[in-house]
């Protein structure tokens, strides 16, 4: 019995663990962002990389300093600060000043994330607050849209397709001919490929959908939130546009709907964890987005819609949480034994 002296490890069950780690999940989100980042560089030039570097760098630095000052363990390794940085970069126009990006990063990490306890504790999406703070502080800089692919020659500023479409709706005519009669209106194919003005990460619908596919395949997110979010917007826009599918297609691809529905609304920390709650949350996001777009004075409603639903998440969870096994209310006619 030589093995009796041997020291063994004793720990609570289970003794096997799945391969999923926080770092791996965040890394997958970063990978899913890469197609959109590449698209942005092609469309808007190398300045995209500078913006991204400043954004990610500021977020990581802010995270590190915060944890140090608060005497808490270092959380840079979980890569969540990198994700926040990437998403802030995705939410600004290419013409933005770099210090503004850094400002957004600091607000997102310090105020929204670390003040509330760090990863998993923030009640709203840090990157979205970063964007909203910029929008409120520097409205002109945040809507200084640049024509894609113009960086090789002369930078040309332009209006955003979403604003144009919104103006048409408010004027009461969203017919096909009215949409196509707008100057410089990108075609639907251009919208898909991203040859339109907008924030860095939102323009290329195709790249965003590739990112979505990757997240779904890697099981980082479930299709629930993107499906119900985009679906709700689609249904409302279909009715609002009197079943004009061209209007619908522009509404879905313009603005930040796809970026928001795929990368922002699906943030674990600020969305409900259970299936029923996610449906309520996603429909709420869709509803608010559509209402702001159709009736609000702002052209875009995705950020505000998600933030409002983030705040409502604990309440949604309160009434959608699963009941302990066997204590559910009996359905009518259920087996009564």
């Amino acid at each position: 019995m030589s093995n009796e002296e041997k020291l063994l490890v004793v720990s609570p069950s289970p003794h096997v663990r799945s391969a999923a780690t926080v770092t791996r999940i965040m890394f997958d989100v970063i990978v899913a962002c890469v197609p959109s980042l590449i698209a942005a560089v092609i469309l808007f030039g190398y300045r995209v990389l500078a913006i991204t570097a400043v954004s990610v760098g500021t977020c990581m630095l802010a995270e590190w300093v915060c944890r140090k000052v608060m005497k808490r363990h270092n959380t840079l390794g979980d890569l969540s600060a990198v994700v926040t940085g990437l998403l802030i970069a995705f939410n600004v126009p290419v013409s933005i000043k770099l210090w503004m990006v850094a400002f957004a990063g600091i607000v997102a990490i310090v105020v929204v994330k670390q003040f509330f306890g760090g990863i998993g504790m923030n009640f709203v999406n840090p990157a979205l607050i970063g964007r909203i703070v910029l929008l409120a502080s520097f409205p002109t800089a945040m809507s200084n849209w640049v024509q894609p692919l113009s960086w090789r020659t002369d930078v040309v500023t332009t209006a955003s397709p979403l604003a144009e479409i919104g103006n048409l709706y408010k004027a009461g005519d969203v017919s096909k001919s009215a949409i196509y009669s707008i100057d410089n209106m990108p075609s639907l194919l251009d919208m898909l490929l991203g040859k339109r003005s907008g924030s860095l990460g939102e323009v290329c619908a195709l790249a965003l959908l590739i990112g979505l596919a990757y997240l779904l395949i890697r099981k980082v997110i479930k299709p629930t939130i993107p499906f119900f979010y985009i679906g709700t917007v689609a249904v409302i826009m279909l009715i609002a546009g009197k079943f004009n599918f061209v209007f619908l297609a522009y509404e879905l691809m313009a603005g930040g709907l796809l970026l928001g529905a795929i990368f922002m609304a699906t943030d674990y920390t600020t969305s409900p964890v259970n299936f029923r709650g996610q449906i309520v949350y996603a429909i709420g996001c869709g509803l608010i987005t559509a209402l702001i777009r159709l009736f609000g004075s702002l052209p875009e409603g995705v950020s505000f819609a998600i933030i409002i639903m983030n705040i409502l998440t604990p309440h949604i969870e309160n009434f959608t949480s699963p009941k302990p096994f066997g204590s559910e209310k009996k359905k009518k006619g259920a087996d009564e034994k």
């Binding site: 663990r17 926080v22 999940i25 959380t75 979980d78 674990y268 409900p272 259970n274 699963p322 096994f325």
Partner: peptide
């Protein structure tokens, strides 16, 4: 080593709730 995970902060991913056969949180 693959089975040893360092405890980190909860990110509220909801996996625990989704896999719980007893419908607990």
């Amino acid at each position: 080593p693959a089975l040893i995970k360092k405890e980190r902060d909860c990110i509220r991913c909801g996996r625990c709730e989704q896999v719980c056969p007893m419908g607990l949180m």
